[in-house]
Amino acid sequence: MINKVVKNVEEALKGVESGMEFMLGGFGLCGIPENCIGQLVKLEVNDLTCISNNAGVDDFGLGLLLQKRQIKKMISSYVGENDEFERQMLSGELEVDLIPQGTLAERCRATGAGIPAFYTPAGYGTEVAEGKETRKFNDKMYVLEHAFNPQFAFVKAWKGDTAGNLIFKGTARNFNPMMAMAGKITVAEVEELVEAGELDPNQIHIPGIFVQRIFQGTAYEKRIEQRTVTPKS
């Protein structure tokens, strides 16, 4: 088996430079690559373009990179949970490209699947479609959307093995599988790293072929954004 393991997050992010385009998995704070984000803060790289469904909260997730003004452009579907984000966006420091969530997911998938562009009905007739090619299929209008071209994809999985195979848990899966497929270099951080052969091949969500580097993550906070519960009665 090809061994994808790197020692630690420092080694996993080798080659990361200012001005690069990254994909970062996660929905809200669920399934975000906490270790990789922490290392990006440490590396003090800036002028980054970050493709991620959300932008974290003020003091967690991508909010940590925003605080240090390391992000030049965000490509997201929903960004409402972050005051610093709002300030930078309104002052023009931060460029923001808002795109429909399903279009974002499919653009990530297309990137990894060798599909340069595809038609989707989402956003037709809205400002999202302005300047884009449109076409009618079966009496319905569609908008042409393109794949991305990120240098790195940072994803978080529940379990992974030394061959780079990944299994996700719960709704922490979200954008991580498509982004794992899309990175020129895909870095996977996992809660539990095991030897090749220990994961059931039937249960693997992302085959190791898509993953260039994998490491055992540490100190996961896994913060809950909206804690909603049914009281014990």
Binding site: F27, I224, E225, R227, T228, V229, T230, P231
Partner: peptide, 18 residues
Amino acid sequence: FPIEGTEDADLINAGKQT
């Protein structure tokens, strides 16, 4: 919503609620 104490950070809805 989960019974208090059983909430899981890895299981949320589109509104980011557990």
